[in-house]
Amino acid sequence: MSFIVLGPIAEDGIKVPKCSFRVPAGFPSPAADHIEKHISLDEILNIRAPHVYLISIAGDSMLGAGIFDGDLAIVDRALEAGHNDVVVALLNNEPVCKRLCKRGAQMILLSENPKYPPRYILEGDELAIWGVITNSVRRHV
């Protein structure tokens, strides 16, 4: 799975209405009667420029983590990547999106799709963790 960097997020976002109810996946409710306040998506997604970037995901290796081909992922470069985090990395100068697994001194990049084997980081490999994925956004149309 690879990615395309779309760039940093602007600090000032547009405010959109937030309704005070959860939407059932059945018949719609008149939302205008339930507007609680106006919020911005950058507040919901905890986006703080300049260390937060959007990337476009390509591939199907992270399906089990809920990250699909074409999704937008929010990457925080200020977070230190830890065991089990989903990261954006450069492995031998190739961009990847994988789950980071640390077993002692051994680092492994795991796919969340059984079609793809684990990638053990070996001596001579160059691994640079670019950031931790904190959220993803999927378009449904």
Score class of each variant (00 low, 15 high):
residue 1 M to K: 07
residue 2 S to R: 10
residue 3 F to C: 10
residue 6 L to E: 15
residue 7 G to C: 03
residue 7 G to N: 06
residue 9 I to Q: 01
residue 9 I to L: 13
residue 10 A to V: 05
residue 10 A to D: 14
residue 12 D to K: 14
residue 12 D to W: 01
residue 13 G to H: 01
residue 16 V to G: 04
residue 17 P to T: 06
residue 18 K to N: 08
residue 20 S to I: 00
residue 26 G to L: 06
residue 30 P to M: 06
residue 30 P to A: 11
residue 31 A to W: 04
residue 34 H to V: 08
residue 34 H to Q: 11
residue 35 I to S: 04
residue 36 E to L: 12
residue 40 S to W: 00
residue 42 D to S: 13
residue 44 I to S: 02
residue 45 L to F: 14
residue 45 L to R: 09
residue 46 N to P: 00
residue 47 I to K: 03
residue 47 I to T: 08
residue 49 A to S: 15
residue 50 P to C: 07
residue 50 P to F: 02
residue 52 V to C: 15
residue 53 Y to E: 12
residue 53 Y to P: 01
residue 54 L to S: 13
residue 56 S to F: 08
residue 57 I to E: 03
residue 57 I to G: 00
residue 57 I to C: 09
residue 59 G to N: 08
residue 61 S to E: 09
residue 63 L to C: 09
residue 67 I to P: 07
residue 68 F to V: 06
residue 68 F to E: 14
residue 70 G to D: 05
residue 71 D to T: 09
residue 71 D to M: 08
residue 73 A to G: 15
residue 74 I to F: 04
residue 76 D to A: 06
residue 77 R to Q: 13
residue 78 A to C: 10
residue 78 A to P: 00
residue 79 L to Y: 03
residue 79 L to N: 04
residue 82 G to L: 11
residue 83 H to L: 03
residue 84 N to A: 13
residue 85 D to W: 08
residue 89 A to T: 04
residue 89 A to F: 02
residue 90 L to K: 11
residue 90 L to W: 10
residue 92 N to K: 05
residue 93 N to P: 00
residue 94 E to Q: 14
residue 95 P to W: 01
residue 97 C to V: 15
residue 98 K to P: 04
residue 100 L to Q: 02
residue 100 L to C: 03
residue 101 C to R: 15
residue 103 R to K: 12
residue 104 G to V: 05
residue 104 G to R: 02
residue 105 A to Y: 01
residue 107 M to G: 00
residue 108 I to D: 06
residue 108 I to F: 03
residue 113 N to K: 07
residue 113 N to P: 02
residue 115 K to Y: 01
residue 116 Y to N: 07
residue 117 P to H: 05
residue 118 P to T: 09
residue 118 P to R: 12
residue 120 Y to R: 10
residue 121 I to R: 05
residue 121 I to E: 00
residue 122 L to M: 07
residue 122 L to P: 00
residue 123 E to Q: 12
residue 124 G to M: 03
residue 124 G to V: 02
residue 126 E to M: 07
residue 128 A to G: 01
residue 129 I to V: 15
residue 131 G to W: 06
residue 132 V to T: 11
residue 132 V to S: 09
residue 134 T to P: 02
residue 135 N to D: 03
residue 135 N to L: 01
residue 137 V to H: 02
residue 139 R to T: 09
residue 140 H to S: 05
